[in-house]
Design a protein around this nucleic acid. Structure first.
Lengths: 332, 332
DNA sequence: TTGTAGGCGTTATCAA
DNA sequence: TTGATAACGCCTACAA
């Protein structure tokens, strides 16, 4: 059994309420007894029992994160950053890997201070929206009919930025690799951004320029890129909807002996450092992970500490210019 | 505020201890009152307060998992399976992403039933071994001087199996891609397995046949494979130390226009389904993830439920024959 | 078959 | 400046 406040009290020869105060640095305790108590606590490695604390104070200092899909790198990276960000603000993060339902239920029983729900590529199934006594903030969930608060990234704007950037470099035939079909998924916003930008810029909306990928894995990116290369009038630039897809696209280029950026320019969604560390540092659009993490953590804490206030805005999308883009070769 | 046992008691017109018993299906309560109480509980969505429960019962039904490195696919997959496995046995898993110290401390304050610590590629730093009142089971940690119980995979045996398998197919020049240098990391066992098998089989221990990779990322595998291909007398088969490395190796082969398995055979560590879904289904060695998850969950629960018993053994390494291996071409 | 009372480790409010 | 004491939500003897 670990040492409790009562053990310390007995050893210090004071009552346990005094110990409680001393450990919280209350001004109601003399410096002398405070010292004695603190020394004792250190010596015996006293750790307050969070369970007991949160039972009485109704505050746990924990944000529960529900994370259904563990295998997307941008999200893994995001998790690390969010955890760090919460810690900075003296909260702790605890993750539950698995279904929304299981996670939300567990965190409700645990009475954490707030819940963060992530769901990136699955379509939102409203029947799954689980009731929660504890405030829930969702990220990347198409919140049709959802009772949760939400914060999200401007995926559409990000892709628009990418297209405009390529257009500015002189590209006209710009391809898109990503989710074209799941209309209820937030992933689809990226496609909308592409279509809208192409349209606005008066660029050809050739269906051969876009390839649907079912999942955000590199194999799909690879497949899609090969497909684009077979095209009679192939693109001079590609916008990719995720880091994983981009990895696949680069491979396909390699295999086809095409040089990036001289033969093909690439802009990738996901503003993560990993994109800078590929063989060719890839120009990226999106909200930088650290900023994203900071905004999400901020929003989550605002939600628990000032319920009712509306959540702070997500940071703006940024473009990180790297080496994967160049003007198209003359004559193309 | 959520509904408590007292609320239900008031509504049912009984005392709250009766409710407590009824909800636990105690035989000390009449069927009739039990029904009434249970209906009420359902109707109002009563969820027992885990905090209060575990404060009194000293049991939380939670296993805390400390997970420092989020970005290795085999581990991500493993997490999902372990969570599922624990749930089957009516426990819940909660992850803490970050340092060993932070995680162990948090879970101690939370008084979870047991802690599982993962650490795959970093060297073990004994100074980091944090004191824990709660039983800790470590996986993949070089437990020099560690006070934690541990369970682990026979990495050495796995790689030996791989080498023997290739040898059986007729290969003589077998390469190895993995961690050659961090002697205190468990990753190093793989290299030892390679060296020992080569030695036992009387195969050439040509230093040019092995390439050190610093991290388990595909870029390193790619780099290593290119290196092996430059070799004057290049290998006819490669043993790869992880899924990520294998992905990189395959890319390098592609780029060099080498066909797998006719030009080069590959066996990869990590018995995960992802290896079967690469363009060429890759022959793998290791303990299959599901089995591994089951063993780890089993060991963790044994540790919390029967302290003192020694942990059950890890499942044996298996070889999954797929399409990435063939006898070497004659004349090589 | 049901209710009462004490306690789990803390915090917070009063009284001393 | 300190110490009792009541709560937080639940469990478990034990008493009725």
């Amino acid at each position: 059994m670990s040492v409790t406040i009562k053990d310390i009290a007995r050893m210090a020869g004071v009552s346990y309420s005094t110990v409680s105060k001393a450990l919280k640095n209350s001004p109601l305790v003399s410096e002398q007894t405070k010292r004695k108590i603190k020394d004792l606590a250190d010596e015996y490695g006293y750790q307050p029992n969070l369970i007991a604390q949160s039972l009485v104070s109704k505050k746990s200092g924990i944000i529960g994160i529900v994370w259904p899909t563990v295998e997307i790198i941008a999200i893994s990276t995001l998790m690390t950053h969010i955890t760090a960000e919460l810690e900075k603000r003296s909260y702790s993060a605890l993750l539950s890997v698995g279904s929304l339902e299981t996670g939300v239920r567990l965190f409700n029983r645990l009475h954490v201070d707030g819940i963060l729900v992530f769901e990136l590529n699955r379509m939102f199934d409203p029947s799954e929206s689980v009731r929660s006594e504890i405030p829930v903030l969702s990220f990347g969930l198409s919140n049709v009919a959802s009772s949760y608060a939400s914060i999200d990234v401007n995926r559409k704007g990000a892709i628009e930025t990418a297209v405009r950037y390529l257009h500015g470099l002189g590209h006209r035939r710009i391809g898109f690799v990503g989710n074209l079909e799941d209309h209820f998924s937030k992933q689809h916003d990226k496609f909308l951004g592409y279509m809208e930008a192409m349209d606005r810029l008066g660029l050809p909306a050739d269906p051969h320029l876009r390839v649907h990928t079912r999942k955000l894995v590199w194999q799909e990116g690879y497949r899609a890129a090969k497909f684009l290369l077979q095209c009679r009038d192939k693109p001079t630039a590609i916008v990719s909807a995720s880091y994983e897809l981009t990895v696949g696209i680069i491979l396909a280029m390699k295999e086809a002996q095409l040089h990036i950026p001289s033969d093909m320019s690439i802009v990738s969604y996901d503003h993560v450092p990993q994109l800078a560390h590929l063989e060719i540092p890839v120009t990226a659009v999106g909200v930088p992970v650290e900023k994203m993490a900071a905004c999400i953590a901020e929003a989550a804490l605002r939600m628990v500490e000032h319920p009712g206030d509306d959540s702070p805005p997500m940071a703006e999308v940024e473009l990180a210019e790297r080496l994967s883009c160049a003007p198209p070769k003359p004559g193309r």
